[in-house]
Simulated scan of single mutants.
Amino acid sequence: MTGSSPRPQPEPSGSAAPAGTPAPALRVGLVGYGLAGSVFHAPLIAATDGLVLDTVVTTDEERRAAARTAFPEVRFAASPQELWERAGGPEALDLVVIASPNRTHVAIATAALRAGVPVVVDKPIAGTAAEARGLAALADERGLLLSVFQNRRWDNDFRTLARLLADGALGEVQRFESRFERWRPRPKGGWRESGDPREIGGLLYDLGSHVVDQALTLFGPAVLVYAEADVRRPGAAADDDTFLAVTHANGVRSHLYVSATAAQLGPRFRVLGRDAGYVKYGLDPQEADLRAGLRPAAGRPWGEEPEELWGRTGSGESPHTGGGTPVPTLPGDYPAYYAAIADALRGRGPNPVTALQAAAALDVLEAARRSAREGVTVRLSPATPPHASDL
């Protein structure tokens, strides 16, 4: 289910394990083997105890060859429909992961749920909050897990900041600044940079999905949204330099930046509290390691960064001059997401990221898109999140 306590799913297909022996691994189908599928989902699924990457859906021969090299036992399908045809049979899947282009997420997730298969969807789950809530309702109706892959909740800096806030190390937080900036002066092309609204491209819905989800996770519901979205690079068709100002119901103000045009990168986090601040530079290393072909494995350090990259806490001091107190960065832990999914499927834990949480982030993204287009500040009502009105 979409809430915090998903209904236990049926045991994996095949004969039941004898008493006292481990249950058979849950079989996973992966739809899409582009960047998201090959770099993030496939390696993390394969590294998770209790999960096995069973089938990859792609018709691209180069991607099939790459998947076969990385996972020699994997099978292939030409379309998601082939997965649904296996439902209820001896080769039925226990989970389908949707890592295909954004425009396909809703249709494939709907088909999977109607076929009785639990689902993980890469962010953004949908183009609108209404579509996300529709999927949540369908999953609830069918009693199936529906989760959204918001891996940045397991970034090293985010985990460290969450610990600082839980410990009260900064006092009452007044402003949260979060930057996900890159220097990519030339567009790469592809659907992610398409100006076609049907593709759900652009940085607002790409990196913006991460920074908004993190802000809501830390500081709760948003009530006001203001945004500026620009297309800066020659030849670009979708927003590539975007800013959001979010006021949370508890009074915290989040200033969120996503950009492909940042010639000088700002701090990843700058958090200002009544008693102290926290400043952290640099990105979590897990994405770079996964792109380089490194894989999480038991007994091997993962998600760790060197001491010189640790953030600092303090007041009235600049981290550039060594001011403040270094804060050891907790290791990043992307594998924790799929470990939680395995537990949720077996009824041993909650859904780590629900569709309704993703819908709340989409409320903010939709409001930001409207704000940038119309030049207004948009008010969100927590009681009626799908709608917004001008101040």
Score class of each variant (00 low, 15 high):
D157C: 06
L204I: 07
L146W: 12
D157T: 02
K123F: 00
A99W: 00
L135G: 13
E131V: 02
W84Q: 08
G143K: 09
W183H: 15
P197N: 05
A107K: 05
A99Y: 02
L138T: 04
H105P: 06
G189R: 14
Q150N: 03
D140Y: 00
L113G: 12
V97M: 10
R159E: 04
T217L: 10
G202P: 04
G202A: 03
V212I: 12
T217I: 06
T160H: 06
P118H: 14
N151L: 07
V117M: 08
E199G: 00
L161D: 02
N102E: 04
A130D: 10
E199S: 03
S209N: 12
A111S: 13
T217M: 07
F180E: 11
E82M: 11
R175A: 02
N151G: 01
S147E: 02
A115H: 13
P185C: 04
R186P: 14
D122M: 10
P197Y: 01
V212Q: 08
I108R: 14
K123Q: 03
T217Q: 05
Q81C: 07
I98N: 08
V121F: 07
E85S: 11
L83M: 08
G189P: 14
A111M: 09
S178T: 02
P185D: 03
R153F: 15
A78Y: 05
V106L: 13
R163M: 02
A111L: 11
E193H: 04
W154K: 01
V212K: 12
R103M: 05
G201S: 01
R152L: 01
P101W: 06
D122Q: 12
V117I: 12
V96D: 14
G168S: 00
A111D: 15
S79L: 05
P90C: 06
R182K: 07
R192Y: 14
S100C: 15
